[in-house]
Computed example of a mutant assay.
Amino acid sequence: MTDTLLETPLAKLHGELGGRMVPFAGYSMPVQYPAGIMTEHLHTRAEAGLFDVSHMGQAELVGEGAAAALEKLTPADVQSLKPGRQRYGLLLNADGGIVDDFMVANTGGRLFLVVNASRKHIDLPLIESVLPAGVSLRPLPDRALIALQGPAAVAGIATLIPEIAALSFMGVWEGVWQGLPLIISRSGYTGEDGVEISVPAEAAEAFAKTLLGLPGVQPAGLGARDSLRLEAGLCLYGNDIDAAISPVEANLVWSMGKRRRMAWDFPGADRIRGELDNGPKRLRVGILPEGRQPARSHTPIHAPNGEVIGLITSGGFGPSVNGPVAMGYVVRQHADDGSALQLQVRGKFLPARVAPTPFHPRRYAR
């Protein structure tokens, strides 16, 4: 596996912790540890899980006009982002499809970007292609990224770095701890309170071990990360959003700045404006199957009369809700909460209904 796959700076630690490694986005990544996915999921909800997300792409945009340049590719309002704050955004293609979703932070004097592992080879050249003279994109392959998530996460790391306790959701702190230059955001992709920490790669293992020594912290893998984000109703690129899906269809209009929706000066604006005015043909919705049988990605969705009306994009068992949960796209006429659906699972039709997301309450530090 390691002959063809990249490894993160925490590869040795995963081995020591008994991580079961699988290929993911070109990397060898831990899907779970000996405790198992369900235990890791529930422990993160109750205390704190430590996730290696170093496969993600990190970069910084430097130079006057960096925010305006990035807005050539996204409808997010980057120029209004204050120092010490972070924002979720979407990179769009000319047709209004989603090239990727990303995080952007204003660290004061530069923008810090985190993009998806499977898309960084596309995102970074795309961003570089729109930069004016005086603005430069600097990839940061020499940094690891660690997510500490759960109700005990911030209290734990604040015993090391007290400033983190004062951050609100999407707040960012940059500083030096024991000689290490860190960038820490109060954010994550589990629906829980927590932090994501950018740390120099050579110090990542020692830093992760320090975090694992905090009260209530246990390692968690990709399996728990996926079930946590699904319960929280959060999109996974390549499953729930892709280059053919618009922000309107994906129910991500909230990520588009008000100023940007007045100017309509971003890629795919004509399509998106039309969908906002007239309604899209399909919408991403939450889906609750009846019974205990999960409906996985690519499961066909039918109306009660048998007509095919959509497709499941993410699905599985939700440990916190103690039942199956899913997301998918259905034609707009069947997208209202409570709408009856039939899911074709292993040749049988299972009843389901459209349900609001998140399936489990998000507990961000507002």
Rank of each mutant, 00 (worst) to 15 (best):
Y237V: 03
Q149S: 04
F24C: 04
G286K: 07
G26Y: 01
M103S: 15
L288P: 03
A340H: 01
G318W: 01
H121F: 13
P139K: 09
G268L: 10
G213A: 11
F359K: 05
P141A: 08
L182Y: 02
L17W: 07
I146H: 00
A243S: 14
K72G: 11
I312N: 00
R259T: 14
A25T: 02
V253K: 08
M56T: 12
V176G: 06
Y189V: 01
Q178N: 08
I312M: 03
I309M: 10
D277Q: 14
V115W: 07
L343P: 06
Y27L: 00
M170N: 11
V248P: 00
L167Y: 02
L92A: 02
I98M: 13
M56N: 13
A35D: 15
G323H: 11
L222T: 06
P139M: 10
E47N: 14
D226V: 10
D3R: 14
V325T: 15
L10S: 04
E7D: 09
L111K: 07
R119H: 09
P139L: 12
V330F: 05
I161D: 04
G36D: 08
I183R: 12
R362G: 10
T313N: 06
G57H: 07
G315E: 10
S136R: 15
E249T: 08
T107H: 02
Q342T: 12
T39C: 11
M103N: 15
R225S: 12
G279I: 08
L70S: 08
L145N: 05
A59N: 10
P141T: 10
L228T: 05
T39K: 15
R87A: 11
A48V: 13
E16D: 14
G223L: 09
N239R: 15
A201K: 05
F207E: 07
V154I: 15
F266C: 11
D336G: 14
M327L: 12
T107K: 07
P34L: 10
L92T: 03
A94R: 12
G338Y: 02
I184R: 05
M38R: 14
V308Q: 15
F51A: 04
L137D: 04
P319F: 13
L50R: 08
L182F: 05
F102A: 07
L17F: 07
A46N: 14
D277M: 14
L212I: 09
P162L: 07
G179Y: 06
W173S: 02
A94S: 14
G57F: 06
G18V: 00
R119A: 01
T159H: 07
E231F: 00
R273K: 15
I37F: 00
G36S: 06
R292P: 10
D52V: 00
V331Y: 03
L5M: 08
Y27N: 01
Y88H: 13
G188D: 05
V62I: 15
D242G: 06
Y364Q: 10
H302F: 12
A335M: 07
G96H: 03
L17C: 08
I309R: 06
